Structure formats: structure tokens, C-alpha cells
Amino acid sequence: MRLFAALATSVVVACTAPETPSAPATGRSTFEQSGCRISRVVDGDTITITCPDTARRNVRLTGFDTPETYKPQCAGEERLGQAATLHLRRLIAQASMVDLRTSGTDRYGRLLGRLALDGVDVARAMIAEGLAVPYSGGKRRNWCV
């Protein structure tokens, strides 16, 4: 358990950008400079990151909520969840700069993070596309009504 805690701390330190709005002079984010990368899109609001010398970690993206793909409540939610997942994959694949700023963990042990691609906040982009709703915790939207 101590090893897991040490690895989790290392990921946060290695993959958390400072709270400054400007990008480093190299044109790469602190996240990218640390050697971290997005290794998987789990669903429309969760990704997996891999950083050197640390374990792979799931990151729950903050500021928005997308329909569930794991145990959806109805077929409509599953379709929307798949569309959100596909859209996030496309956004990440097309991005030339990835910036992830983490801030703690959720009750499932996932890192919480705000993702920007080419300087655009992913939460705002997903909401603008109608594939997500604003979310800051609490009761989630029922996508089946």
C-alpha cells in the first residue's frame, strides 16, 4: 500500500502543471515536458495517463459530465456515451499540445484533472458539442429522460 501511495504522489508531482496560464517557452506543456502522455480514453470524461517512472493512472476530467458507457441506464445513454467517447478520442488525436492539471482524487481513487488541448478547455468543448453537461459534483443528470 505504501508503494501505491508513493507512486500516486509521483504521478501528481510529475504530471501537474503549475497554476500559470502561459505555456513554457518550448511550446510544450509541463505535462508533456514531464514525459507524460494520454494512453487511453476510457469514456467521454475519463482518460488514462502514463508518466515515466510511475504507474498508469485514470483521470476523471472535471468541469463536465458525459453519459455513461459502463452500465448505462438506457440505450439512448449508451449511444450518447459512445459518441462522447469517440469525440474525446478525436480531440486528443488532433491536438498538438496537451495540458493536464490535476487536483486531488475522487472516491474511486482516480486523479481529478482539467484537460486543455491546444489551449482549449475540453470541458467547454464537450459541452458546446452537446455531448456533456456542466458538472462540479453532486447529483448527475439522468440521460434517459
Rank of each mutant, 00 (worst) to 15 (best):
T16K: 09
P18I: 03
P18L: 02
E19H: 00
E19Q: 03
E19F: 03
A23T: 14
A23N: 12
A23F: 12
P24E: 07
P24H: 05
P24N: 05
T26Y: 09
T26V: 12
G27F: 03
G27M: 01
R28I: 06
R28P: 09
S29P: 02
T30A: 14
T30E: 12
T30I: 02
F31D: 01
E32A: 10
S34N: 07
G35K: 07
R37P: 03
I38R: 03
I38C: 06
I38Q: 02
R40N: 15
V41S: 03
V41L: 07
V42A: 14
D43E: 12
G44M: 08
G44A: 08
D45N: 13
D45T: 05
T46P: 06
I47D: 11
T48S: 15
T48F: 08
I49H: 00
T50E: 15
C51S: 15
D53S: 14
T54F: 02
T54H: 06
A55E: 13
N58Q: 15
R60Q: 10
L61E: 03
T62E: 13
E68Y: 07
T69Y: 05
Y70A: 08
P72C: 07
P72F: 06
P72R: 04
Q73H: 15
Q73F: 08
A75R: 11
E78T: 00
L80R: 13
L80D: 02
G81H: 04
G81P: 04
Q82M: 05
A83S: 11
T85F: 02
L86N: 11
H87Y: 09
R89G: 08
R89D: 06
L91T: 06
I92F: 00
Q94S: 12
A95P: 04
S96A: 02
S96M: 00
M97C: 07
M97P: 02
D99I: 01
D99W: 12
R101S: 12
T102C: 13
T105L: 14
D106W: 09
R107G: 06
R107D: 07
R107I: 13
G109T: 10
G109I: 09
G109A: 06
R110M: 10
L111Q: 01
L111R: 07
G113H: 08
R114E: 13
L115M: 05
L115D: 06
L117H: 04
D118A: 03
D118F: 03
G119L: 05
G119I: 00
V120D: 05
V120W: 04
D121C: 10
V122S: 07
V122G: 04
A123S: 12
A123Q: 00
R124V: 10
A125H: 04
M126G: 06
M126H: 08
I127N: 01
A128R: 09
G130F: 02
L131G: 05
A132Q: 08
V133G: 03
V133A: 08
V133N: 01
Y135R: 02
G137Q: 03
G137D: 05
G138L: 03
G138K: 10
K139M: 11
K139P: 09
K139C: 00
R140Q: 14
R140Y: 10
R141L: 11
R141C: 04
R141W: 01
N142P: 11
W143P: 10
W143R: 07
C144T: 10
V145I: 14
